[in-house]
Design a binder for these strands. Structure first.
Lengths: 209, 209
DNA sequence: CGATTGAGTGAACACATGTTCACCAAAGAA
DNA sequence: TTCTTTGGTGAACATGTGTTCACTCAATCG
């Protein structure tokens, strides 16, 4: 048999595994991951508590799987955005809108990352920080191709990449906390984020050391 | 009797109240406020669980009291720093060191604010966000006296104030998460924060609209 | 086909939680 | 002094928790 066989056994297992992940993500959005219990997750996934252990050793392991899944989603999105040349040309002006659109489309994922980045368990926190660091490194490889920056030292490029990531996370937090059905607030957030990005970029050409 | 009378009754009450607050702050630092139970707080404060209710209606109310206390501490610190004219003259270069020193001196308070700002209960989160907004407003009144900025629109000044507060919070988070006894990491954080601030400031003179 | 594997069950456990209640003893008021 | 107020006690409660165990029964294997 092929390893992507229509193996009903594995298929069913994968289905309840995603049900557990989805349930955990939902509950995290409602009350935070740390306040979410194994039993709640199992119940919402339509499964008995003991069955949880067939898929994860503990809630911590479930949390790490969730982090991984969120960042894969996120990474694909950023990659697609970068591929669009029009976006790359106006990277600063566009990035604010892209961010808001991305966050809105995957609100649950971003909410999880934003909340558990600082509030969650030690293991989950460390995993998220690591992923964000990776992000900053990737971003610095994009930034180094921008005018003015191309002559900076690698440390400075990384510094400004971190500054961007930090403000993206903060922007994501704002969108996540945004009440439902308030498009006026949304444009305010986009506008504020864009201005902050532009202000930062303005300093590029005068940066030394 | 005067209202600051050596009233043994009130005195004792106030003492166990602070014991409860201190216990809650300690436990928050170890495991997060949301994961801290009423019984744990009572036990560490050396009191029976039922006694908790003589001081707070719920853990949520205790959390709000903690937020208030943290920000009063913080406000005093910033006010003292502003009063020093030497600091005000080199506000940007100094602010990074001040921040790190302040965070290190009141690590528990800052850790609480940083964590519960996004991970805590709805009520606690709202309270912290409100206090931080107040902070940004206060800061904008300081910033408006700086060269270049004095002609900006009020919205733009507030925007840059928010940018600063956001990065201060992020810097505080870094210090809080910093492992014990790693002074090398500390200077890296100070240096990084200072560079980011300087980069932002560089944009001031070219800002328009 | 019969044997085996393994995802999901349901009950039980030992414990921690928030909240209540009647009670106590000391501080303060009369 | 006696009476009242009140911060703190200890026991009890109902409920939610993580984890275990022997079990079923359908999909898979030989």
């Amino acid at each position: 048999m092929t390893d992507t066989a229509v193996n009903a056994r594995q298929q069913q297992k994968e289905r309840t595994r995603s049900a557990l992940l989805a349930a955990a993500l939902e509950l995290s959005q409602e009350q935070g991951f740390a306040q979410t219990s194994l039993r709640q997750v199992a119940k919402r996934a339509g499964v008995v508590p003991a069955a949880f252990y067939r898929h994860f050793e503990s809630m911590d392991e479930l949390g790490l799987a969730l982090v991984e899944r969120c960042f894969t989603t996120l990474r694909v999105m950023i990659r697609d955005a970068q591929r669009d040349p029009q976006v790359f040309d106006h990277i600063i002006d566009a990035s604010a809108e892209i961010l808001v659109a991305a966050v809105k489309a995957n609100k649950a994922d971003f909410a999880f990352v934003a909340r558990e980045r600082v509030g969650g368990s030690e293991a989950v926190r460390a995993a998220i920080r690591h992923e964000l660091d990776l992000f900053a490194t990737e971003l610095s490889m994009v930034l180094v191709r921008l005018p003015n920056i191309d002559k900076w030292s690698p440390e400075d490029v990384l510094m400004v990449a971190r500054l961007f990531v930090r403000n993206m996370v903060a922007g994501a937090e704002e969108v996540v906390e945004m009440p439902e059905g308030r498009p006026d607030l949304e444009v305010r957030i986009v506008e504020g984020a864009r201005r902050q990005m532009r202000l930062i970029v303005l300093g590029f050409k005068d940066w030394r050391s």
